[in-house]
Design a protein around this nucleic acid. Sequence first.
DNA 1: CGAGAGGTTGAGGATCCTCAACAGCCGTGG
DNA 2: CCACGGCTGTTGAGGATCCTCAACCTCTCG
Lengths: 255, 255
Amino acid sequence: MDSETATVSARPAHSHASLRLNFCAGTTGCAVACAKCQVRALGICGALDTSELDEIEALLEHVDVDARASLFMQGDGADYVYTLTAGCVRLSKDLTDGRRQVVGFALPGDFLGLAMGASYGFTADALDHVGLCRFRARDFAAFLDRKPHVMRRMHELAAHELTIAQDQMVLLGRRRADERVAAFLLDWRERLHHITGADHTLHLPMTRQDIADYLGLTIETVSRTVSNFVRQKLLLIVPDGVRILDAGGLRGMVG
Amino acid sequence: MDSETATVSARPAHSHASLRLNFCAGTTGCAVACAKCQVRALGICGALDTSELDEIEALLEHVDVDARASLFMQGDGADYVYTLTAGCVRLSKDLTDGRRQVVGFALPGDFLGLAMGASYGFTADALDHVGLCRFRARDFAAFLDRKPHVMRRMHELAAHELTIAQDQMVLLGRRRADERVAAFLLDWRERLHHITGADHTLHLPMTRQDIADYLGLTIETVSRTVSNFVRQKLLLIVPDGVRILDAGGLRGMVG
DNA sequence: CGAGAGGTTGAGGATCCTCAACAGCCGTGG
DNA sequence: CCACGGCTGTTGAGGATCCTCAACCTCTCG
């Protein structure tokens, strides 16, 4: 446990009590210092001045998680909150009979633990190799109580998430399959663009199953819909993603 | 405009620029003083001490809204935020082609404007005769900045709403019609119970269409599903609501 | 090379929607 | 007073969308 980027190679994303994380202790080793953090402006840390940045840096641990490993499972005690610095995390809720709903995909800058109660409300699985800043929930809450403007920032993020969630309700409740897929692709492009300034070629770290569970569809329907888009020359399928050929056409489907 | 409980009788809930509200100026007139407010503990005001209660009372206007009138429309400038003190408000989002998604029903104690940006993200229509405390958004934001623990309470409410929204995503994305209706009725009972200590007889101030738009179904499917529940002796239909005969049976459907 | 995972495509079927008719309720107005 | 229209809700028949089941393909990895 000594300052190197030894990433955990935990395979089964659904083994409950396995070791899931890997520490990259303190400010030494793998991870970037807050002052040089690429995604600082995107998340909570955008609200911090330099002295506060030092303060929060003392509270965090840099954590590395391998693809397919779980950060935490729905129902686990919510002892930690996270800021994502690299990679993509799938947030999902399971029904007892195996049905699953993906409630979101977290990207760099996103905060995990906005709606933290005693336990996590969803499972978080790494899709990529993921880098995070980890805080003890109690420490982080204490920090917020000392820093009202950071609490305010937290609330702004939560409010934004709530708005997104309501848009997702419209999608799930009232949109057809093709509208859902088109909206997903456009939204994903928007998010990647915001972070990396990406162009029309989208990396999709999630599987078709993940997309289906996010959109309230089956894997076959997602596959068929994407194939239709390709046939209509709206998309091109590329390795690990798609290339958007006609964003206007997709936007026209969403309305 | 003078201190009396003259309620606006605005009929059309969808006329955009009509006068929609009715004031009940300051602490005089119709509405209850904060100190005697029945729902204080339920909402933001549960976080206030007596001096803060005086302070916030100076910021608010008591407002009365008739059934079927709109508090605000999606896209309107978000100049006000509200705390609901009586009645029920439908929160909905419209697509351009007429499809509608109800994103929630607000009850006494609920706060309207958690996710306030420049404009409202949804339309709010009174289903009942509704009583509210209204705040200028700017004044309220300034109050929050002066009172970190109230900001914290706001964030807790937002986090709770976010959790509810994620549960609703599961419902909309992955549950069948009968599960949706059963979950809705049980949840509604829970909420009424929390506020009024109601028993198995539920008042439903919303129409079947509203329920359908909340659950991502059609009015016919809701009607048929309720009829099935009646046939299975899970429910009894009563004027303006239902009586739950077998809560365990309903719970069994949700899982 | 074989096994397994992820993805695509087709045929058939279930769920839910669409369209339509009708019943009950209520306020309006002849 | 009762007829009428409008609104809400219920029920039925038929149909569209999406799901289920199944086969097959590609790619990766041991």
